[in-house]
Amino acid sequence: MSQVIGVIDYGQAGNIFNIRKVFELAKKEVKIVVVKSGQDLKSVDKIVIPGVGTYKGAMESIAPFYQELRDKILKVPTLGICLGMQILSEIGYEFGETPGLKYFEGAVRLMPVKHPVPHIGWANVEVIRPSKILKGVTAEDVFYFMHSYEFINYKDVAGLSNYIDHSFVSVVERDQVFGVQFHPEKSRTHGLKIIDNFLSI
């Protein structure tokens, strides 16, 4: 059966093109709907909150349908990617203090490292507990990261990654809601595993 995937639009920012492309590659019977309002959310089966942008900018873009989005996330499978994962937190500190979608506990802060920031490049994901979104992911798989901020969370962590000697949360999961700090839509066949897992839920 065809699935309707709603991709949240951030206006100027966001990478809907790449999200659309990877979903089309993964499975043909997927319809992508660009979500710009609460009305657009009504018909979707699943939600993708994409990356590229800033915490503050993304929250401003979704402000007109904030409540509808929060309600919908409680009901349907949702995948937050990079920034999209971050705004599922309670609060972010990129360009000031901004409240988030508050699905997961915790805050999003600048990575506390001496290494170059943003962290740009490939890293493994250590699966630390049974996870639907990380099904089939092995210790050798690599995923592409491009982020300056990280999600501080202790309750819903499914995966951890390292930036040199710094360990950070790369995957959160609770019920039918998932957040990945990396970009599955940029992570070759390993990323496609994540997309397939999300489509199978």
């Binding site: 206006g11 100027q12 920012a13 966001g14 990478n15 809907i16 093109f17 790449n18 492309k21 990877v22 590659l25 590229v52 592409y144 491009m146 970009h183 839509e185 940029k186 992570s187 070759r188 066949t189 990323g191 496609l192």
Partner: peptide, 24 residues
């Protein structure tokens, strides 16, 4: 390609950047 793609040359405005992101 399902890999990171970085584009430059001739970018003058934030609108140019937005259009490039929407081109992949």
């Amino acid at each position: 390609i399902v890999a990171p793609f970085c584009v430059g040359g001739g970018i003058r405005t934030t609108d140019d950047v937005a259009r490039l992101l929407h081109c992949g």
